[in-house]
């Protein structure tokens, strides 16, 4: 391996980009650590859970070019499995419950992916939607999910059996750590040898095939990672709210995550975070205002506006203007 290398401008640019990203992470972490002293921790936890969900979705849509319309299934699988385990086995610690919930989402994701990945575009979306509806039906019917009522009073327990998560502040820092881990996994995936191939496949699939890559296997891996992280978000959310319900499995949820991702900026690292923050805040604010019944209409209008006028989303548009003005 060559150790002494001349730094080409591209490598230098990449290194600068890495430095800039590093700075952004530091800012993100600092903001995250300080946030619960400024805003209500439960609200922040909700934002973080949905942000992780949206980031997972973005990995698939933004970096693999696959539009899934069934991501609610993974969120709900994680949520229900974790909720059921923590309710039924009081000795189980929350991190183990979340781990198993995430693994369950990975298993469901592998099954979904193996079936859907052969189709492209709208057909891929339809297959994922159909499978997610199937999962919804299973959750409605199964005794372990509590059917229409859902699972209530899931104990938060104590982290590693040591640190009680009953206080919202402790819970918040745990959720923040989970979010950072999920975010770091996505980061690394995007900037890995695998990420390069994924990008190539998104850019020109036949060419990637002609270079000898088995593109279906690469897409499947992206799907599984995305499903697993969506499950992680769902599991964590269940622990936070001590609740798993059918809302998470409904196709509305699959639509909402698309909205968050597009609004924030698909294919950008921070877009889904911004999008999730915005959508959750809006829902939160509107629910308390006289416009409470109009939440869906308002979100719908914002979505239309976004698609019509700033198609690369908030973060995408900002990145564009920065590039234009600092080149």
């Amino acid at each position: 391996m060559a150790t002494t290398q001349t730094l080409t401008p591209a490598m230098e640019r990449q290194r600068n980009a890495r430095l800039r990203r590093g700075m952004l992470y530091l800012v993100l972490i600092a903001v995250g650590l300080a946030a619960p002293f400024v805003a209500y921790p439960v609200f922040l936890m909700k934002v973080l859970c949905f942000a992780l969900f949206a980031c997972a979705f973005n990995l698939l849509l933004g970096y693999a070019g696959l539009l899934s319309f069934g991501h609610a299934a993974f969120l709900a699988t994680g949520g229900y499995v974790t909720g059921f385990l923590l309710s039924s086995y009081p000795g189980l610690t929350p991190e183990l419950g979340i781990l198993v919930g995430t693994l369950a989402a990975v298993v469901v994701g592998t099954l979904f992916g193996a079936l859907a990945i052969r189709r492209q575009g709208i057909y891929f979306a339809m297959v994922t939607l159909a499978l997610a509806q199937l999962v919804y039906f299973v959750f409605v019917q199964s005794p372990f999910t509590g059917g229409e009522d859902g699972l209530h009073g899931v104990p938060r327990g104590a982290l590693f059996g040591l640190i009680s998560l009953r206080s919202n502040l402790a819970m918040y820092y745990f959720v923040f750590a989970v979010f950072l881990i999920g975010f770091a996994i996505i980061q690394r995936t995007v900037h890995s040898p695998y990420g390069q191939v994924l990008k190539a496949i998104r850019e020109n699939e036949p060419r990637a095939v002609s270079l000898g890559y088995n593109v279906d296997a690469y897409k499947l891996l992206a799907f599984v990672i995305s499903a697993g992280l969506a499950g992680l978000a769902g599991s964590t959310k269940t622990v936070v709210f001590q609740l798993a319900s059918l809302t998470d499995a409904h196709w509305h949820m699959s639509g909402e995550v698309i909205l968050m991702t597009l609004l924030g900026g698909v294919g950008t690292l921070f877009g889904p975070l911004v999008g999730a923050g915005l959508v959750v805040s809006l829902q939160h604010q509107l629910a308390q205002s006289p416009l409470g019944n109009w939440v869906s209409v308002i979100l719908g209008l914002i979505f239309v506006l976004c698609v019509l006028s700033f198609r690369s989303g908030i973060v995408g548009e900002i990145a564009k203007s920065v590039r234009k003005n600092f080149k």
Partner: peptide, 13 residues
């Protein structure tokens, strides 16, 4: 090429 946990810097050589 399936190693999603490695840095893309491993490709620099």
């Amino acid at each position: 090429s399936f190693h999603f946990w490695k840095s893309e810097r491993t490709l620099d050589h």
